[in-house]
Amino acid sequence: MEHVKGLLAKVGIDPERLEMFNLSAAMGPRWAEMCNEFTEKIRGLGPSPIWLATYRLKRNIKE
């Protein structure tokens, strides 16, 4: 995981966008909580640079 984070950082993607969680099969509520937490974190970081690049490209083509 650390290695892949390093790879992402190399190409300008915030390594914070990748995370590892540990939980057991009995942890349903924790799963929901985790999903929400992570979604909020990504919302804070904004769209990924790759997504933005393709978005801009598409928009330029349309215009």
């Binding site: 995981m1 290695h3 892949v4 790879l7 992402l8 993607i13 966008r17 990748l18 995370e19 590892m20 969680f21 540990n22 939980l23 799963w31 985790m34 992570f38 979604t39 974190k41 990504i42 970081l45 769209p47 990924s48 790759i50 997504w51 393709t54």
Partner: peptide, 20 residues
């Protein structure tokens, strides 16, 4: 595999988490 994560980001995903 590392490549699964990279492919996801390449396709423009905003975040990936691994849970286990």
């Amino acid at each position: 595999d590392q490549i699964y994560v990279l492919r996801a980001f390449e396709k423009g995903i905003d975040g990936v988490f691994v849970a286990g």
